[in-house]
């Protein structure tokens, strides 16, 4: 008897702890009151509407989208060839390369942001936007390499040799045979990279300037000044966006196979 109840009770409690706060955020964002509170005071859509009118949110949303899409694409552009070299070639110094492309996952993001600020932005005059772009690309690179490497490992390498023996160049074999077969893995890497970059805070902390800051940093800043439910509304919207993307990916691709 006790054993039969064990699983449901544990899982219910843990899920309330993990997911409950998210529902509170969603509920609070429909509040009619002017301060963040639960249970919400009345029902209105005004805070959700307000999110779209705050100029800085719009700007920082654009920055974050640019970083998440551009940074992840760049990371893939760098990461796919590197993964391919590591999985298919006798690569000299392969351990060093592997270490280099995976360190961004080991080192705390705040340190990376600070290092870029200290050595690129301040002395060299590198623009904040570019610094953010470099930082986010570096941050996503390990994920890109890991996911793409995993799908390459599942792909037999004699397929490329077969293509070459049928007259294809090695580069041609990559595009004709390898790429079409790791498309799912690449898309999974893209989504993982996008979500990681979009939600990333520490790396961007030091990298903000006039008109250029990421959305999570902007939200943190807004919270310090105004304590209304608009951040809750924005959080809820973003959460639904992330969940929507992941669900679609899982549904159409079996995303979780790759992560």
């Amino acid at each position: 008897m006790t054993q039969r109840l064990y699983a449901p009770i544990i899982l219910l409690l843990v899920m309330i702890f993990l997911i409950g706060p998210f529902f509170i955020i969603v509920a609070a964002s429909f509040s009619a009151g002017d301060t963040l509170a639960f249970p919400p005071q009345g029902f209105s859509l005004k805070w959700i509407a307000k999110v779209f009118t705050v100029e800085s949110f719009r700007q920082s949303f654009a920055v974050s989208m640019f970083l998440a899409i551009g940074g992840t694409l760049t990371a893939l552009l760098l990461g796919i060839p590197a993964s391919y070299a590591m999985s298919r070639y006798k690569l000299p110094l392969s351990e060093t390369v592997r270490f280099l492309v995976s360190t961004p996952i080991i080192v705390p993001g705040i340190i990376v942001g600070l290092a870029l600020l200290r050595y690129f932005v301040i002395p060299v005059g590198l623009s904040i936007t570019l610094a953010l772009f470099l930082a986010h690309t570096a941050l996503v690179l390990p994920y890109a390499v890991r996911v793409v490497s995993a799908s390459l490992a599942n792909l037999r390498s004699d397929m490329e040799e077969a293509a070459v023996l049928l007259g294809s160049s090695r580069l041609g074999a990559f595009f004709r045979v390898v790429l079409p077969n790791i498309r799912g893995g690449i898309l999974a890497a893209f989504i993982l990279g996008f979500v990681t970059s979009f939600n990333q805070v520490p790396v961007s902390l030091f990298l903000s300037g006039p008109g250029v800051r990421t959305l999570p940093i902007d939200m943190l800043g807004y919270m310090e000044i105004v304590f209304d439910p608009s951040v809750a509304a924005l959080s809820a919207l973003l959460a639904f966006l992330s969940i929507g993307i992941v669900f679609a990916a899982e549904r159409f691709l079996g995303f979780s196979r790759y992560v």
């Binding site: 706060p21 609070a28 805070v201 973003l238």
Partner: peptide
């Protein structure tokens, strides 16, 4: 929850 912004997840605890 891993897909949801940590800002949003932490923010809920204020409430």
């Amino acid at each position: 929850p891993l897909m949801i912004s940590p800002v949003a997840r932490t923010y809920a605890w204020i409430v």
